[in-house]
Computed example of a mutant assay.
Amino acid sequence: MAATSLASQTVLRRAVQAFVVPRFISNNNLSHCSTLQSFPLPKLLSSSGLGMCHLAQAVKGEVDVSLKGVGDKSITEAVKQIVEKANRASFRREVIHTDFITPPVLKESMLILAKLVDVKAIAQGGYPQAERHRLSVGHSEVLTDALDIVAAMSITGNFGFQPCSHGDFLGSILGTGIAREKLGDIVVLGEKGAQVLIVPELVDFLTTSLDKVGNVPVSCKKIPLLALEYEPPRTKSFKTVESSLRVDAIASAGFKISRTKLADLISNGDVRVNWTTVTKNNTTVKAGDIISVSSKGRLQIGEINSTRRGKFAIELIRYL
């Protein structure tokens, strides 16, 4: 009986260590391993779970400290969810994939994941210059190679007389009901149409659902990633003079829409600055910022100079 009890405790202890070590301990806190092993087993497995709870809180605190400099709450929350997925995947010895994430979320996530023991992360965007990526996270012994989690599709049609922009393609794809986070980059190819990166499980759906972009009938098909024809994005630069650097003023000039219409877009959550949703019309922008408007596309703020009359001469770079 005693031998059976001892064996059971040994099995339980190993199970607990397997759970805690890869899931919670970071490179900076390896001393927690010896502390954990010195805990009496009944205390560690008590119904209160204090040892486990305190350790989890310590790691949560570390993540919070790492994200202290991130001002946007949506980015912070997205990164926390990715870290939680990585911990869960490591514990279960499995691999979990995220949807497509924006550059700020990718950057902050990779910084934190690099500190976690036994956790590996691989980012894939479909091609080297990709902006949006998916992350594969899991235990380092399981996630050994990059998996096929990004698919490429071509969208072709007679765009010679009716060219469509990045915003046109994006708006039409979203119009089928596909969520934005299921889409990666869209590579616009002028008369040849566009190529889009997407989660593999939606390839068939997009093939049958997307039949028009703007007024142009289109057809879609899956293509190899190596067939992507990436080129530097086509842009158009122009200047505007504004009395302020408010996002509603700049975006209104950049996308050639009224400030009233832009105010409605902001209210609907359709305007983003550096991939972060804008909630106030008077949010200020600066040189280098990227403004995105759903179904309209993107523009980047170039050089800003003050005029003699106290206004701002602003260079705007519109992505076509």
Rank of each mutant, 00 (worst) to 15 (best):
G51Q: 12
L189D: 04
V21Q: 01
S295G: 01
I266D: 09
A253F: 00
S165V: 03
V203F: 04
E131N: 10
L45H: 05
L44P: 05
C164E: 10
I290W: 02
I198E: 11
I178P: 04
L147Q: 12
L206R: 04
P200H: 05
K43I: 14
E181Q: 11
L316P: 03
N215C: 04
F205H: 08
Q124K: 12
K222T: 10
V203D: 10
G310F: 00
G160W: 11
F39S: 09
G177W: 04
G184T: 05
K280P: 10
V11C: 07
T102Y: 12
I101Y: 13
V278L: 12
R318M: 10
S66T: 09
S5I: 14
R272E: 15
K212G: 05
I250E: 00
S258I: 07
G160K: 08
G177R: 00
D204A: 11
I149K: 01
D72F: 11
V241F: 00
A3I: 15
L67G: 07
T102F: 12
R308P: 02
K43T: 15
K107P: 05
V119N: 08
T102N: 14
I304R: 03
I173L: 05
K120D: 00
V137R: 00
S47W: 05
T10W: 08
T279F: 09
E229M: 12
Q162N: 11
S172M: 07
K115E: 14
L170I: 04
L55S: 06
F205N: 05
K222C: 09
A2V: 10
M52G: 10
D264A: 13
A58D: 15
V59W: 13
T284M: 03
Q57G: 09
Y319M: 08
G171C: 06
C164G: 06
I186N: 10
D211H: 10
T235M: 09
W275S: 08
V187K: 05
